[in-house]
Write a protein that binds this DNA or RNA. Structure first.
Ligand SMILES: [Mn+2]
Ligand SMILES: [Mn+2]
Ligand SMILES: [Zn+2]
Ligand SMILES: [Zn+2]
Lengths: 142, 142
DNA sequence: TAAAAGATGATAAAAGTTATCCTTCAATAA
DNA sequence: TTATTGAAGGATAACTTTTATCATCTTTTA
């Protein structure tokens, strides 16, 4: 089983053209086994139990690497700072995955019909916030 | 006109039960006139031109105040740190506006039909990321 | 107009992230 | 298998964003 895991991680790395290291493998396995949407600090705390000498910088570097190579993805666009919305119209956002430009798009233009107002688990809907991830026109050319 | 603006800001403050200060008024007017989704630093830079002595802390405090009192809103949920997604299924998120708990919800469960793949401005859609903002069951009781 | 409550400004501190630099390790070829 | 070389890791400084603290000043209200 250990052998199998190791082998499949080697394969994953080969597919993505990244080197296999012990830290990377443990990090991958720990992250893979985590529920929800952990922060880098939470990942670090868990990995440290298996590789006590690991550095927080290594965790950050490899989280980025995993995200860039498509092994995992970011939960949502994370802007360095909080952003305020002054447009009070009901609208959503187009986010360019390359240049990170954010453009408003009206609810009708987007053509989204939020149906339910109660969701599984008894969650009561207040509003929907849709980020459309994709490429802006400029970035499609480049 | 200046008089009118001042009067309407006083009214807005009264409605939201917050005190009227010079800094607050200038901040509100500057933010109201800004395009897009500025960061606190960008707001600070602009306000400083009109009130050179204003402190960055005041800008932060009042942005929070404006958001809490519903005058403006946050562009999107901003978590203190980057969050990684290990669930590779196509899914979206229910975000509790009170306790900030994030729960996965499958695409079908949500009942969302993303139709177009080209949007205004030539934006090419890669994927949709929907945050449903609302109250989780626990927070509805409290 | 005076007292109380609240807001501001300066600045320290905390939290999150990135950069630097030296050491160690993994990939590759001899 | 071993030597070489580029890549990766570890320690830590530095940077960015945000919050906390506290003395001073301004609004509110009575
Ligand atoms: Mn917007
Ligand atoms: Mn998720
Ligand atoms: Zn772009
Ligand atoms: Zn909740």
């Amino acid at each position: 089983m250990q052998q199998t895991t190791t082998t499949s991680f080697r394969k994953l790395c080969a597919e993505h053209g990244i080197a296999v290291t012990h830290q990377r493998q443990v990090l991958y396995e720990v992250m893979h086994g985590m529920e929800g949407h952990p922060s880098p600090e939470e990942v670090y705390a868990k990995v440290k139990k298996k590789v006590p000498a690991i550095s927080l910088a290594t965790v950050y570097k490899n989280i980025h690497l995993f995200v860039e190579s498509g092994i995992f993805r970011k939960m949502s666009m994370h802007h360095g700072s909080v952003r305020v919305e002054m447009n009070s119209e009901a609208h959503h956002h187009m986010v360019c995955s390359r240049c990170k430009a954010i453009t408003d798009i009206g609810e009708e233009e987007l053509g989204l019909a939020p149906s339910r107002n109660k969701l599984p688990g008894g969650f009561l809907v207040e509003r929907y916030s849709v980020d459309v991830i994709g490429l802006c026109e400029k970035c499609q050319q480049a």
